[in-house]
Nucleic acid binder design. Structure first.
Length: 918
RNA sequence: GGGCGAGUAGCUCAGCUGGUUAGAGCGCCUGCCUUACACGCAGGAUGUCGGGGGUUCGAAUCCCUCCUCGCCCACCA
């Protein structure tokens, strides 16, 4: 690769062209492709570093939430790659069973058809085609924000490879007795026509009603039991009413019967602890097929379980219901049925009252429909045994969760874990590998498809259902690496992976289950850091989403300001675990931090490269300390500080030993601090001070110019390395233009080495004197509104370091537009400033100074300082402070006292001299 | 009902285990098109760190309490 002449650096940074060019060159160089042979777990000499990407839904299009998630992963990945790890960031997509099926069903609906019109095979073919056409666009989009994924390993949860893994997992769990067929009440979505897991049925607080309904006691005219229910439409499925056995009000009625209104069926009054005397009337109707609690009661009491609602949510006599549902209600939608039943009861005088009642109603997480508890047969995974090692993994520090507070949530969920319903009545997904033989009712669980019953040879049919999407994604950290082939090179080289970066919303759906699967199938945790980042919200703090129309399209941001601007903005704006607030109506303002910095960086590079020129540059190591200017020592020292702070903010990437120890458990992953540190170094130190101070040296001829060039290039080279993980494109483009030098260790910045600290340099803080002096002069100029073009004259009346100021006088003068004289005195109106090192700076201002104003100002300053000083002295006089506070704190306070006292003294003298001059 | 988090400058937030005079970005004010950058430069203003109490030599930071938001979990019909 050649270094283009610096003369060609465009004045305006063109993100589109630059980003396209460099992304392609990275790909061409295979910079993102991991090599399993180089992992030290596979005999290589590099630490492996692995992140598996949370697979976006295959039908998804990029939104700003992905932008955040992907950028975080990319920053870490690029950082580790530069650190020299064998780095694998594995991308992929999720087939997203319900979500994808819903989309295709909607397409069909527009054509006036349903999936049943097509039939299973044709529907799957159509969905496969749809996914092949439009699916995976999101992965393309990720490239435009710079994602450095290993695209050669792109995975898909419904690929043939992962299908093998899914079947293996199912069969293994079945063999271990952890998968079973259960007959019970589960969550059912009447719109998606499938069962859901507990996690997929989300609670939502709603203002509902509590209906008090009278059930007449049989044989006791005029006597009734009042039942309180929120769901009167299910009453046609009632098989009993229950009272608490200790409830004195109803004790005598236990064993009697009541007449179920509308259905006109006699049902028993039973005693069960489930009935809470405190709630409602203390009488609860028992509807075993339509409520999980009632189901348990029904089992305990051997009650019938009539199903009175269809899959679609219409009231009807479905199973064992006889004629319970009267003709006029058959086929009526459940909510319509509710109002009709309530009306009928009202008419019949059986409705005692309706109370407002706030309660949590479960909704389908995919379509929002109110979920219906429904009795059915489903496959379940027994979770308790799987949860134990996952709990231990976090408790022992094998896995850490950041931010820490989520650990309690994780632990709480696993401790109370319930069995996982994994069967879905869908067509899009991994079909359950279970075959039934009609002849003898044999059930066969098999890794291979079978055509005849292995037990009796009879004809078999496969279970109609598919597996929960999450049943394939919980295997993701190892299924993507070749499992169940335990000899797979990738599996050996890269498992366990390192970081899992995602949003807290899927902690239970996915993260905790991956941990369980990791232990269950691989015998080890799948990663050792779980990093849960915040959510992107609008200015009203509403989560951004396409459906709400408050989203930001990351590609718009990329088009407008470039990927680097997008990346820097989201990283710098996001504290650990904190939400990111952006204004979808003001992209200009929202992304100003990134855009401004990107432009600034480009301009720094443009200026620096133009001034430095194309000739080769000496290595900093070849320059003797004695040749370095104060500014050189300072910027090199600041670079050291920046490197150290970036390292502290980012790392450590992995625990020192097998588990995280107390000291390292919560360190690192503070990406915003990393970004801010790097920015501060580049903008506020390198550009604002070093670049300004080096201008004259670089314009000169001779030896010092070479020193300045070497330091400049070295500092900027390292700055670009520090910034590359968050701003990959601009840094790469500029780095490629740096002049030839020894330190160029790689063809590409993205694979170049992360900076190391520098040698320690003596006197690196002397340049601070220069900065303080310049600051003081600038402040005085501004205060007296000295026109920018006008030179001023300043005198250092007294200073402890005359050599320093005399050798840096020209530089100070240049930066502050002043001529500086060391020693001597100023006659006439003047302004004083006391520098932190005790130097007394006097600015001669001719007629510009208002003596009275100056004296007032100094007096106020002195009064403030004196009151602070007296407070400080009070503290120092306090024996509890001097004896209890740590020695270094006390010492610091003493130094401060001396310092302030001297300043007060200096101010007093100045005020006095002003008076004298007057 | 249980648990968790947040409340710091006009806005969005940093502030790690208590220790100089509480910070950044954006916005605002003043002055500058100083030949890298007006997406910039120089200077500046703005905070009883949600209220109250406590511990401490010292609290934005630890404890208690109250107020206001937000999130998660939950089989009281």
């Amino acid at each position: 690769m050649t270094t283009p002449p610096t003369a060609e650096i465009p004045t305006q940074y063109d993100p589109a062209a630059t980003e396209r060019e460099w992304y392609e060159r990275w790909l061409a160089a295979d910079a993102f492709t991991a090599n399993s042979a180089r992992s030290d777990r596979a005999g290589g000499d590099r630490d492996p570093f692995t992140i598996v990407m949370p697979p976006p839904n295959v039908t998804a299009v990029l939104h700003v939430g992905h932008g955040l998630n992907i950028t975080v992963q990319d920053v870490i990945t690029r950082w580790r790659r530069m650190r020299g790890d064998e780095t694998l960031w594995l991308p992929g997509t999720d087939h997203a069973g319900i979500a994808t099926q819903n989309i295709v069903e909607k397409q069909l609906a527009r054509e006036g058809r349903t999936r049943f019109d097509l039939g299973r095979e044709a529907f799957i073919a159509r969905t496969t085609e749809f996914v092949a056409d439009t699916g995976g666009t999101i992965l393309e989009q990720l490239r435009s924000i710079g994602a450095s994924c290993d695209w050669t390993r792109t995975a898909y949860t419904l690929s043939s490879e992962l299908s093998v893994a899914v079947r293996e997992a199912f069969v293994q769990l079945h063999e271990r007795g952890l998968i079973y067929r259960g007959h019970r009440v589960i969550h059912w979505c009447p719109r998606c026509l499938t069962s859901l897991s507990d996690e997929e049925a989300e609670h939502d607080e709603e203002a509902g009603s509590l209906y008090h309904i009278r059930y007449p006691v049989v044989g006791e005219p005029g006597k009734w039991l009042t039942v309180a229910t929120t769901r009167p439409e299910t009453m046609l499925g009632d098989v009993a009413v229950a009272v608490n056995p200790n409830d004195a009000r109803y004790k005598s009625l236990i064993g009697r019967t009541v007449m179920l209104p509308i259905a006109q069926i006699e049902i028993p009054i039973i005693a069960d602890d489930y009935a809470d005397p405190e709630f409602g009337t203390g009488v609860v109707k028992i509807t075993p097929a339509h409520d999980p609690n009632d189901f348990e009661v029904g089992k305990r009491h051997n009650l019938p379980m009539p199903v009175i609602m269809t899959a679609e949510g219409n009231i009807d006599n479905v199973t064992d219901a006889g004629e319970r549902v009267p003709p006029e209600l058959r086929g009526v939608d459940r909510f319509e049925a509710r109002s009709r039943i309530v009306a009928t009861l009202k008419q019949g005088g059986e409705l005692e009252k309706i109370e407002p009642h706030k309660h949590a109603v479960r909704h389908c997480y995919r379509c929002g429909t109110v979920v219906e508890p429904r009795l059915s047969d489903q496959w379940f995974v027994r979770m308790r045994e799987l949860a134990a090692p996952a709990l231990e993994g976090v408790r022992s520090g094998r896995i850490r969760i950041l931010p820490e507070r989520w650990e309690a949530v994780y632990v709480n969920w696993l401790e109370g874990i319930r069995d996982w319903n994994i069967s879905r009545q869908l067509w899009w997904g991994h079909r359950i590998p279970v075959w039934y033989c009609d002849k003898k009712g044999c059930v066969t669980v098999s890794r291979e498809d079978i055509t005849a019953c292995p037990t009796c040879g009879g004809a078999v049919r496969q279970d109609e259902d598919v597996l929960d999407t999450w049943f394939s994604s919980w295997l993701w950290p190892f299924s993507t690496l070749g499992w169940p082939d335990t000899a797979s090179a990738d599996l050996k080289a890269f498992y366990p992976t390192d970081d899992l970066v995602t949003a807290p919303e899927i902690l239970f759906f996915w993260v905790a289950r991956m941990v369980m699967a990791g232990y269950a199938f691989m015998g080890d945790a799948p990663f050792h850091t779980i990093y849960l980042h915040g959510t992107v919200r609008d200015t009203e703090h509403v989560k951004m989403s396409k459906s709400l129309g408050n989203g930001i399209d990351p590609l718009d941001v990329v088009r407008l300001y470039g990927a680097d601007a997008l990346r820097y903005t989201v990283i710098s704006g996001m504290g650990m675990g904190a939400d990111l607030v952006l204004d979808p109506h003001d992209l200009e303002r929202s992304f100003a931090p990134g855009r401004n910095f990107a432009t600034k960086l480009w301009n720094i590079g443009r200026f620096l490269l133009t001034k430095v020129g194309d000739e080769g540059v000496a290595s900093i190591d070849d320059i003797d300390d004695s040749r370095l200017a104060r500014a050189d020592r300072w910027i090199l020292a600041r670079l050291n500080v920046a490197i150290a702070e970036c390292n502290a903010a980012l790392g450590p990437a992995r625990p020192e030993s097998a588990t995280w120890k107390a000291g390292e458990l919560r360190s690192g992953m503070r990406l915003n601090e990393y970004a801010e540190t790097a920015r501060r170094f580049v903008w506020n130190e390198l550009a604002d001070w070093y670049l300004e101070s080096v201008k004259s040296r670089i314009a000169s001829d001779g030896d010092d110019r070479e020193v300045a060039r070497a330091v400049l290039v070295h500092a900027f080279d390292n700055a670009l390395r520090l910034l590359h993980p968050v701003i990959p494109f601009i840094t790469e483009a500029l780095w490629q233009r740096l002049p030839e030098r020894q330190a160029r260790d790689s063809e590409l910045l993205c694979t170049a080495a992360w900076p190391n600290g520098e040698r320690d340099l003596a006197g690196s803080d002397e340049f601070e004197r220069v900065r303080e002096c310049v600051d003081a002069l600038r402040a005085m100029r501004a205060e007296y509104a000295v026109p920018p073009g006008r030179m001023v004259h300043a005198v250092l009346v007294s200073t402890p370091s005359p050599e320093l100021y005399s050798s840096e006088g020209a530089l100070i003068g240049q930066l502050a537009r002043a001529t500086l004289t060391i020693g001597g005195r100023v006659d006439g109106p003047a302004m004083h400033a006391l520098l932190p090192d005790g130097s007394d700076l006097v600015l001669s201002l001719g007629g510009l100074v208002d003596i009275e104003q100056e004296r007032r100002k100094l007096s106020v300053e002195m009064a403030q300082l004196e009151s602070q000083l007296s407070a400080l002295r009070g503290r120092l006089a306090n024996e509890s402070f001097t004896s209890r506070a740590p020695a270094h704190i006390v010492e610091a306070e003493r130094t401060k006292e001396r310092d302030w006292a001297a300043r007060v003294d200096g101010l007093r003298k100045k005020i006095h001299s002003l008076g004298a001059a007057h």
